[in-house]
């Protein structure tokens, strides 16, 4: 099961910091999240940055990035700071 971690406003949307979800790829995870949170996440997912084990998925296989046991998926809204 992949560990999905939520940050910033996404925590308020889903009401938790993290959860474990059984999926095989990022594409499947995004679909599952949309179903689980009934559209509440949809607006946010359009702008969400996704890291898998600390790497931005655009440097992996994008939506086709495989997810397996103990993979950590971090979901962030657009950030600014410093």
């Amino acid at each position: 099961m992949a560990v999905v971690k939520y940050y910033a406003s996404l925590r308020n949307v889903v009401g938790k910091k993290e959860e474990q979800i059984e999926v095989a790829s990022l594409s499947e995870l995004l679909q599952r999240l949309s179903q689980m949170y009934e559209g509440r996440l949809a607006r946010h997912l359009k702008t969400t940055t996704v890291l898998v084990n600390g790497k931005n998925v655009i440097h992996l296989k994008g939506r086709r990035t495989p997810l397996g046991k103990d993979d950590i998926v971090s979901l962030f809204p657009p950030l600014g700071g410093g």
Binding site: K5, S9, F76, L79, G80, G81
Partner: peptide, 24 residues
């Protein structure tokens, strides 16, 4: 803009702690 109207007002610059942590 979501960065300047949502994230920064809500969480301040400290929003980078978890992001930097996640990216080593």
């Amino acid at each position: 803009h979501p960065t300047t109207s949502e994230t920064l007002p809500a969480y301040g610059t400290g929003i980078f702690v978890n992001r930097c942590n996640a990216t080593n």
